[in-house]
Write a protein that binds this DNA or RNA. Structure first.
Lengths: 343, 343
DNA sequence: GTGCGCCCCGCAAACGTTTGCGAAGGATGG
DNA sequence: CCATCCTTCGCAAACGTTTGCGGGGCGCAC
């Protein structure tokens, strides 16, 4: 049996389809007599009427869907963000399409096209790169866009994330408090706001503590991954300079660091302390449990959705950027520096 | 400037919109002259024409979308499956809606309704529970459905997963080879096919090895989570019976076991060996690295998508169920049993 | 009693496709 | 040379909504 259509409920309620439409939509319900509205509602209920989203979207030109672009949902950092987005948007009747870009420009462009083809009402992206303009262009072309985690400064875009520099400050202060003076940094890629801002935060914080890190003692990883972390940590430890602690660009890089420490027969935190960034799921299970800077992933997702909804309701809404305060969570990977022992 | 419509390209190509439609669709292109087809294609190209999905779906009654239901995308086991699904479906022009059910019947029903409201062409679900009929009902009502990971035996449904019993066989054989004779099982919930089949596999394998596990030595966890694992492991170790190894219902339960071992000042694998199930991401990073039964998550996703596509092309296709072979990956959490030491 | 305004609702167009039907025209066979 | 068929394309309906427009009816004021 074919699903009930608007005409069916109109027929059953003894009204014109147009009237039925008005009665069914909360926004226009006031235009129809209370009695008949009730009749229509009952008819709809009785027939199990569900509006056809295509007909509706065709007419109203919006789809009640939004796209979510992330590098890779297989990276445990992102799913909580996506859930935050989904949960919030579902409350307002939206559903999301998620696309993985693998940090590849072509895939990102392809996914963006997919989203446009699907006529999403808006987009939330965690894939922004500083000198890549595809997202900014889309926003400039009128696509409601909000950035999460990574930002694109100066573009007048909506965004929500954490104060990266502040987070790194927490990390180095913690290490300094423990007595460390030889602190290194394995930064994320400079082409990402997160990589760059955490790096800047690092040098600021070190200077603030009266420490002047030698250039050899900060290296940049090619990506926010374990493999890149391994490579970068290897490079870092190739230097002859003393290192008792390192703050990593994010948790995955830190985990890569774990592997390199094992390679070098160094133990953590006895020989060198490591602190990560993000507090993604499971870094408390790893050995030693990772000291890291927590970013409230789920909440960021929810807030991003909030802002997007606001923007959708009012297209003239001025760009908002939310910078949440990170929080240090200390676990087992940090401790006092060794007393001038190895290396 | 409003996006180009079919009428626009027809106008530019000097043909009727109907003809343009036929020319643009590969399936009907043969119905129009090769020359004019080319003209239409060029016009479409020039105008940057993109078909309106709503108009198309309204007419053709399919949406080129499919729903994916999982318990929780925050659980690292599922994202690779979802990516497998997405990657495969994207190749055929489909995009997916994902819904999280949190293993809650009401949420599942709600998500199912959302999917139907969105008019998905099909559904892939990882949320099947043995005595819950909502998915089976939907399938019986004509919704193309394929199950992943968990099955619903006897319902004539499409499904793809791993041979759970065989996986557990590998696990206990490995332990027996190491010399273990006192092997326990912390099973998953019996209301899930995975929980039940792995449990059955356990008793079979034990019998096959000539061992008769005491009833005290198998306990059921309430869920496939760490917390439930902790509770179940505590209960397990409350017995006075000797236990030198335990096979856990899945990796998360195994991780819960890690915590309980620490509580009891037992070390793994010196005092007790643990083997997990799934080989989800990061269980190689945990300490000790978890010996576990690998299930090819990404591949399962792709295959599920394959089967669904087949079903969509041919509605009369007979139900297929794919049982992949699991594989044991041994890491650091298993070793020979202690020589009659503690407990 | 007339006129005005307001509340409700019907009418029909429109959103952008797809597709069955039929016609025009050319080719082909007898 | 006529009948027939095939190819190619135009025509228009249809998919299920939303929404501007207008009209009918009623109440109220004068």
């Amino acid at each position: 049996m074919a699903p009930a259509t608007l005409k069916d409920v109109a027929l059953r309620a003894g009204v014109h389809p147009g009237t039925a439409s008005r009665a069914l939509n909360p926004g226009t319900r006031a235009l129809v007599n209370e009695q008949t509205a009730r009749r229509v509602l009952e008819a709809a209920q009785a027939l199990g009427y569900r509006p056809n989203p295509f007909a509706r979207s065709l007419k109203t030109r919006n789809s009640y869907t939004v796209g979510v672009l992330i590098p890779d949902m297989t990276n445990p950092f992102f799913p909580p963000i996506v859930r935050g987005i989904e949960d919030r948007l579902a409350e307002s009747g939206y559903t999301v399409f998620v696309g993985n870009t693998d940090n590849d420009p072509e895939r990102e462009a392809a996914q963006l096209l997919r989203m446009r083809d699907r006529q999403v009402d808006g987009l939330i992206a965690a894939t922004a790169e500083l000198e890549r303009h595809t997202l900014a262009d889309a926003a400039a072309a009128g696509l409601p866009l909000v950035l999460v985690n990574r930002t694109l400064p100066g573009k007048g875009l909506f965004s929500v994330g954490v104060d990266d520099a502040a987070g790194v400050h927490l990390a180095v202060e913690h290490l300094v408090d423990l007595g460390h003076r030889h602190i290194a940094h394995v930064a994320g890629p400079e082409r990402l706001s997160t990589g760059r801002n955490r790096y800047k935060g690092f040098v600021e914080a070190m200077e603030g503590a009266g420490l002047r890190p030698h250039p050899d003692v900060v290296v940049f990883a090619d990506a926010f991954t374990e493999e890149a972390g391994v490579a970068a940590f290897r490079k870092l430890f190739a230097t002859r300079r003393r290192i008792t602690a390192v703050v990593a660009g994010n948790d995955l890089i830190a985990l890569g660091g774990y592997d390199v420490l094992i390679e070098r027969k160094l133990s953590c935190p006895q020989d060198v302390s490591i602190v990560g960034f993000n507090d993604m799921r499971f870094v408390d299970k790893v050995r030693p449990p990772l000291t890291t800077v927590r970013v409230p992933q789920y909440e960021i997702g929810r807030l991003a959705a909030d802002i997007l909804l606001e923007r959708l309701r009012n297209p003239a809404a001025p760009p908002r950027t939310l910078r949440l305060a990170p929080e240090l969570v200390v676990r087992g990977s940090t401790g006092p520096p060794p007393r001038r022992a190895t290396r």
